[in-house]
Amino acid sequence: MRNDMVPFRLPPLRSLLAPLTGLTLFLAVWQGVASQIDTTLGKFPGPVETWQQFTNLIEEYQQEKIREQKFYERQRIRNEKKLQENPNAEIVWREYRGMPTFFDKIRRSLITVASGFLLGSLIAIPVGLLIGISKTAYSAINPIIQVLKPISPIAWLPLVTIVVSAVYVSESPLFDKAYLTSMFVVMLCSLWPTIINTAAGVGSVTRDMQNVSRVLRLSPLTHLRKIVLPCTIPSMFTGLRISLGIAWMVLIAAEMLAQNPGLGKFVWDEFQNGSSQSLARIMVAVVTIGIIGFLLDRLMLLAQRWVSWDKTATLR
């Protein structure tokens, strides 16, 4: 680690004052406006109702955990009994199949977004490097990227759904189709910013750096490894960070449509359910989506700072 890294320090109280005031004001406005909106499902949920539903969701999660424990407990006792009666009896262990709780859905969303983002990045980084290095590859691929880039990933969803159904046929599928569909849509939209920023990063390799490499007679591979990659990494991570942000936004919409049991489906199900609690539960999901999105961005920012050799650049 470099010596100019400052150890983590808690911010002083004064610097917390402004954000806390902002937050309080926001909550007040939210509560005020919410009480003015009457819907067919009752009043629009304010922060208080949303918080109540959040605690409810935690409770439901705990109850579900207890049910699961009891299920396994019953199964164990049943199986032990069987063995006592007949030591050669065939024992079947069944997996608990309860309703996925809110937190299971968060996990599902995170797994979906992570896998789609990783897959997308694995494609985007080499493509970005390629079109950054080769002018020919750039003129061949760039027009396609420019046309594909503005397409809303959701427009792909019906096509992806059909293709996944047609192609992914398996007796014992490792992944369910809703997951694959959402994951591919996430992958599609996380490609472009990474490709474009990686290519731009390669463009920042100066003529001088190239000349250094030529004088040293670095092989193409060494040139890529020692000059191009390190020079590109800060820009590449900017692209990755934008990609992950978009991926998370798109995921929610994709899950609604593909019925992947993540946060998107949670929102959709509550919307269809239409009980008096639904709006507040949707609000919980909305706030959760925002907080997770924020945390993902912070995570990428940390990664960006970690890999960036240009310590004078302010990354925020």
Partner: peptide, 19 residues
């Protein structure tokens, strides 16, 4: 072609900033 037996000191140093 270029080669290390004809080493160049470039005008603006051209050190690699990440090393």
């Amino acid at each position: 072609e270029p080669g290390p037996e004809r080493a160049v000191v470039f005008q603006n140093h051209s050190l690699l900033p990440w090393l």
